[in-house]
């Protein structure tokens, strides 16, 4: 025993202190458990704290809507991906949108081209429940005759092209798209 060390054999709080202390311990445990451990380990967030702190789903393995720290790198689906071809007529001066309805985190592969004079385009996505007018662009261009590539949707919503035919003649937009999507109305 070092000098000055306390060597009490035990502490002996009164029955009342014991009861109160035990109750506080249990209560503190419940709070810690519900506030931090349930969101992190069990993906249940009754107090909403987990979402705020970003620990929700911290240890989830394959929760579909998990706010995991890495982007999902694979997904097993029940059906084969669709490959569809689309055609849209762009009258002179017309500005239209051709969009597809896609879930969040979905890869979309595309290839598009223009027959006729080049057009202005903005390949972008708009969330289903987002602020009005909010969108994210994947590719943009003016006087473009086509493009190919892919994007992974950052949110569930309508994803596709805004096309503006600034010419005096008809242009035709054709695209082939592969992925898991539906046509947006």
């Amino acid at each position: 025993m070092a000098n000055g060390q306390r060597t009490v054999d035990q502490v002996a709080p009164s029955l009342k202190s014991l009861a109160i202390g035990s109750a506080i311990s249990a209560a503190a445990a419940i709070i810690v458990f519900v506030a931090f451990i349930m969101p992190a380990e069990f993906q249940r967030d009754p107090l909403g704290i987990g979402a705020v702190l970003g620990i929700k789903g911290l240890s989830s393995s394959d929760q579909g809507s998990g706010q995991g720290m890495e982007a999902q790198q694979s997904s097993v689906k029940e059906a084969a991906p669709r490959t569809e071809s689309f055609r849209v007529f762009l009258a002179p001066g017309a500005g239209i949108e051709f969009k597809l309805l896609v879930d969040a985190g979905e890869p979309i592969l595309y290839s598009w081209e223009i027959d006729g004079e080049p057009v202005t385009f903005d390949l972008h996505g708009e969330p289903l429940d987002g602020p009005d007018g909010y969108f994210e662009s994947y590719a943009v261009g003016e006087a473009s005759t086509g493009g190919s590539g892919w994007f992974v949707t950052p949110f569930e919503g309508t994803h596709g092209w805004y096309l503006h035919n600034t010419n005096k003649t008809l242009s035709v937009f054709r695209a082939t798209v592969t992925g898991y999507f539906e046509e947006a109305d």
Partner: peptide, 9 residues
């Protein structure tokens, strides 16, 4: 008491 709380968790 803190150890007790940890045990409860």
């Amino acid at each position: 008491f803190m150890i007790m709380a940890a045990g409860f968790v």
